[in-house]
Amino acid sequence: MNGVAARTRARELDRQRRWSVVRHVVARAAVYAVAAGAALVCAAPFLWGLVTAFVHDRGGPGASGGPIRTGRAPTAEHVRFLFRSTPFPAFVVNTLIVGSLVAVVTLALALPAAYALARLNRSWGTPARMAILLVYLVPPSLLFLSFSRIVATLGLADSFWALVLVYPTVTVPVSVWLLTGFLKAVPVDIEEQAMVDGHSRLGAFARVVAPLVFPGVVAVVVLAFTLSAGEFAYALTFVWSNARMPVSTGMPARLGNGDPLLWQSMQGGAVFVAVPLAMAANLFLDRFVAGVTPHR
């Protein structure tokens, strides 16, 4: 009697064991499927752009069928055109300059502010942190009209200095938020140890705390760079000369209305800009996650 029950039980357990193996396999397959699908969807326009950037011009619109069916070897003609005969290199240089300057300004403002909020316990600490975070949510579209007036008054109209002045309004709040998380992860003991070891508060910050949040600093640089490279509304409003435009407005405004040749070149340009930025961000994805996570 008991033997039968035990055998039934064993068979039941076996069944469940097999079932859980199946479930595991299905779950793994789902993870891979979603990952692959997401990667494909996310990269779709760029992949398409990359392909079309290297195919021959079909000779004007109207012809039916995809460009791949032309059956000719890939060509670097469009890419060469992009770099030789369009202002694209100037756009990239402008973006790099603006991004670097914005990153420097952001860091200079945000690191001390984040330290003040994370460590120097004042009664206004939490409200101040909230207020700075909320500034991030104020959309550029609410401000650009006023900014255009301010920028004109300061004599910065049609100059990328206007962007250097204005972009930190976007980057500083996020960076303060991010760095506060990083700074809170540095044990207070270590800082106090540095103070007992003969440094002032400022010295402890500079010598011990700042090196320890270096990954956060780099994350902020990447973030500031990405945000300022992607900004559109301000760039559109403040800069209108070809030579001074950044990529984000330069490409749609100067290239986007032309012939298919330009369009094809531009796809190459988009990939050229997008991939390095994504790679930089990918390097610091884990840091971003760590920085956003509330630390106890």
């Binding site: 003991d189 106090e192 540095a194 007992v196 003969g198 002032s200």
Partner: peptide, 18 residues
Amino acid sequence: PPRLRRVAMVFQSYALYP
């Protein structure tokens, strides 16, 4: 401030500079 007091402290966590 602590730096002028000529004291040395060993914290519970040891607080070594990582």
